[in-house]
Write a protein that binds this DNA or RNA. Structure first.
Lengths: 201, 201
DNA sequence: TGTTTTTCTTATCTTTTGTTAACGTTTTGG
DNA sequence: CCAAAACGTTAACAAAAGATAAGAAAAACA
């Protein structure tokens, strides 16, 4: 994928939240960079301060912690989704997790200080603040749903719901990552799958 | 607590995110309302569209779903915290949970259409958008932490962490609500507490 | 292609949690 | 102040999940 296509996908995704006129795009565009990562490369590592917020224009990433030497997968970002260690990015504190590509991945990024400049820019600041608000609100709702699912659903219910909503993406992700995502062990997910098989068979 | 004091607490809390000059406050203030609720009254119920975002200036509330006739407590808001069914408020879809006071409670609220007017107001829109963004980002980080805790921690670890961070607020909340909040049953929390007692004794 | 690594399943055993019910205590509300 | 409701603990049993290990299948890659 060439740079122009990548930048256009970024623009298109921003416009899902706020429309941009040509002038505004000309202010924003020069501040973007394109990062290409091979499979299993890290976008961020523990100890680093997340300097970029990005949009995955091709490929996918997973977020994971290392606890007692074990990787625990926490989240994913796929094509046309934003990617960052928001906590580190927003608080300017060192990150505590990895973000690693699951396949060869292209990410359009905007760095922290440039974003602050945009927020403060009278030409485009109001609209960028709105954009930032709407993105944060969007993810707030995603997180709220997932948070609730841990309280109101059993692991089996969470897995069934993921099957319904997750779509084809699930086929591309190793199952033990999904197990982590659901808050259970890979062995336990395997048992849940067998239970479901027996019922539907 | 009188209205003036309540409104001032609201202003003070907004200024934790963005400073307001007197002119701006004079724009914002007339749009606020004060809601007083007695203990166990509902701030919102399933089926309603959340029309207000509020700040708890006195008292506390809990969020809960009803599943199979059972109340499942999901979240709390205490003094100086914002309160709303964000999903319903932001998406304009009917709410699926209750928000109910735990004690006599005062809430300063701003309704949806007034907030949209503020966002669109050239005088104060940029700053209000920023305020909205920062609040959303703040809760995003809270939710992210809680979400992670379900993936990376055991119920016992979550309870221990809650003891460390929760402070005196925990004393005021019935334990079975806390159990729900941790994603376990009241019986199980009781056992966890006994296990901890034995270890520390 | 063939070898190594990763992934998934299965089995066994242990630990934890859920479920239900009983009991004593505390709180609530008339 | 008293009766009713709510709350927390405990017990017993069932169900589910964690830990560990082994083996088969699939994927990676050289």
């Amino acid at each position: 994928m060439d740079t122009v296509t990548a930048l256009n996908k970024f623009r298109q995704q921003v416009e899902m939240f706020v429309p941009l006129n040509e002038t505004e795009w000309q202010v924003l565009m020069p501040l973007l960079e394109l990062i290409a990562l091979k499979k299993k490369q890290n976008f961020i590592e523990p100890g680093m301060i997340a300097n970029h917020i990005g949009l995955v224009v091709k490929g996918s990433v997973r977020y994971f912690y290392v606890k007692d030497g074990e990787e625990i997968t926490n989240y994913f970002s796929f094509e046309n989704e934003f990617v960052s260690s928001y906590k580190s990015f927003l608080t300017r504190q060192p990150c505590s997790n990895y973000i690693q590509t699951l396949e060869d991945t292209l990410i359009v990024v905007l760095n922290y200080s440039n974003l602050q400049l945009l927020y403060a820019n009278p030409l485009i600041g109001h609209k960028m603040e709105r954009f930032g608000r709407l993105v944060a609100e969007f993810y707030l709702l995603c997180y709220e749903d997932r948070m609730s699912s841990f309280v109101t659903q059993t692991p089996e219910e969470r897995y069934n719901q993921l099957l319904e909503t997750g779509g084809e993406v699930l086929q591309r992700i190793p199952q033990h990552y999904i197990a982590n995502f659901l808050g259970i062990t890979p062995v336990s997910l395997s048992r849940i799958r067998r239970r479901i098989m027996k019922i539907s068979a």
